[in-house]
């Protein structure tokens, strides 16, 4: 059973410098929510708070009834972060260390099958391509069959073709598991292709600047008029005056005249 996520008054500061918030959000169970925004707007910080990797400075996060174990929340990082000494199969079973061997083997085999890596089960990470490594990382997050899956720009390092293929994989997985998914991305196409809801974060400190529910049927036709209209709306918002995540740098007088000798 998927779980809803409730975020109340969440904020995060580093050394007195506010980075994020306050943010209030309620994410419906079994949906994919994309959080989009410019670099430095606090997207990853928000996800790290959800995944328990950062302690919020203020506020509260409740997932489901608040009694979920670690195994119920999966996390996919921007990079594969596979243990280089473990085979793909052992990496996929990394979160199932306490589970009985037969159940673990079954869960790992299923996760590898879902991401299409059954044939590579005995390979080491050094033998994998970037796309395969990221799929192995996805299998590791999926093997415990999490109720909630947190994804931090998981496909940003991949080439456009592999990225699109992985996005299709993710939709397939969502159909298969029905988990509540939170996807951090700076790619508008990815957000619209995958998410039921798109939250635009603006900073700094990061706050919600837009909240959309694109009614695009999945799988999304990326050439459709509706897709372009939604993309334009997001582009307008992200390039508009309300979004100032990155400080504007001024070129100092005389800087242009410096030459590299």
């Amino acid at each position: 059973m998927a779980h809803e996520i409730r975020i109340t008054g969440l904020s995060k500061s580093y050394g007195g410098q506010p980075i994020l918030g306050p943010v209030d959000l309620a994410l419906e169970a079994g949906t994919i929510t994309a959080i989009i925004g410019r670099s430095g707007c606090g997207k990853t910080t928000l996800l790290r708070c959800l995944g328990g990797l950062e302690q919020p400075s203020e506020g509260q996060i409740t997932i489901g009834d608040g009694r979920l174990s670690r195994r119920d929340v999966g996390y996919v990082f921007q990079e594969p972060r596979l243990m280089p000494w473990l085979t793909v199969e052992k990496n996929a079973g990394f979160g199932l260390i306490d589970v009985a061997k037969t159940s673990r083997q079954q869960a790992v085999a299923e996760a590898l099958q879902v991401v299409g890596l059954t044939a590579a089960a005995q390979q080491l990470p050094k033998q994998l391509s970037g796309g395969m490594a990221q799929r192995a990382a996805l299998a590791r997050a999926l093997a415990p069959r999490p109720e909630v899956l947190l994804l931090d720009e998981p496909f940003s390092a991949l080439d456009p073709f592999t990225r699109e293929q992985m996005q299709e994989h993710l939709l397939h997985l969502h159909h298969h598991y029905g988990s509540t998914m939170v996807l951090i991305t700076h790619d508008m196409d990815e957000a619209l292709a995958l998410a039921h809801r798109v939250i635009v974060l603006a900073g700094a400190p990061g706050k919600i600047a837009g909240d959309f529910s694109p009614d695009l049927p999945k799988p999304v036709n990326r050439s459709s008029v509706a897709f372009f209209e939604w993309k334009k709306q997001l582009t307008d918002l992200l390039s508009g005056p309300a979004i100032h995540a990155v400080p504007q740098f001024e070129i100092q007088p005389g800087l242009q005249q410096r030459r590299i000798v």
Binding site: G51, G52, L53, S69, R70, R71, V73, G74, Y75, F77, E79, R81, M83, F94, G95, I97, R140, P144
Partner: peptide
Amino acid sequence: KLLEVGRVHGYSPLR
């Protein structure tokens, strides 16, 4: 980054 993988899977410091 590898240690964080352990953390998200609920590994104790000893593990």
